Computed example of a mutant assay.
Amino acid sequence: MSDQRPSVYLDHAATTPMLPDAVAAMTAHLAHPGNASSLHASGRQARRVVEESREQIAQALNCRPGEVVFTSGGTEADNLALKGLWWSRHDADPTRTRVLSTAVEHHAVLDALGWLADHEGAQVELVPVDRQARVDMEALREAVERDPASVALISVMLANNEVGTVQPVAEVTELASAHGIPVHTDAVQAVGQLPVDFAALGVDALALTGHKLGGPLGVGALLVGREVAVTPLLHGGGQERDIRSGTLDAPAIAGFAAAVELSVKHQADYATRIGALRDELVERVRAAVPDAIYNGDPVDRLPGNAHLKFPGCEGDSLLMLLDARGIECSTGSACSAGVPQASHVLLAMGCSEEFARSSLRFSLGHTSTTADVDALVEAIGPVVERARGTSTRKATA
Rank of each mutant, 00 (worst) to 15 (best):
R301M: 06
P311G: 11
R301D: 02
C313G: 08
S317N: 15
I293P: 03
P303R: 04
I293W: 05
L321M: 08
P298M: 05
A287P: 11
A288H: 10
K309N: 11
G315D: 06
P311N: 14
G304P: 00
N295L: 14
K309F: 09
D323W: 10
L308S: 06
M320A: 06
L302R: 08
G304D: 01
A306M: 08
H307G: 04
I293H: 10
Y294N: 12
C313F: 06
D300E: 13
P311Q: 12
V289L: 11
P298R: 05
D291Q: 12
D316C: 07
L302A: 10
K309V: 14
D297N: 08
G312T: 01
K309R: 15
G304Y: 02
L321K: 03
D300S: 11
V299T: 12
R286S: 06
G296L: 10
L308W: 00
P311T: 10
E314W: 09
L322R: 02
N305M: 14
N295C: 13
G312D: 04
P303N: 07
A288T: 08
L318H: 08
A292F: 04
V299M: 08
L302T: 08
F310R: 00
D297L: 05
N305P: 04
V289E: 05
G304M: 03
S317F: 09
L321P: 02
K309S: 15
A288P: 10
D300Q: 14
D297V: 04
F310I: 00
Y294L: 11
D316P: 03
A287M: 10
E314H: 12
G304L: 03
H307D: 09
D300F: 12
D323I: 02
G304Q: 03
P290G: 12
L321A: 09
D300M: 09
P290V: 12
I293S: 10
D316N: 14
Y294P: 04
D291Y: 11
A292T: 09
M320C: 03
D323Y: 11
A292W: 03
E314N: 10
L321I: 01
P298F: 03
A306L: 05
M320N: 10
P311M: 11
D323N: 14
P298S: 04
A288W: 11
L302E: 02
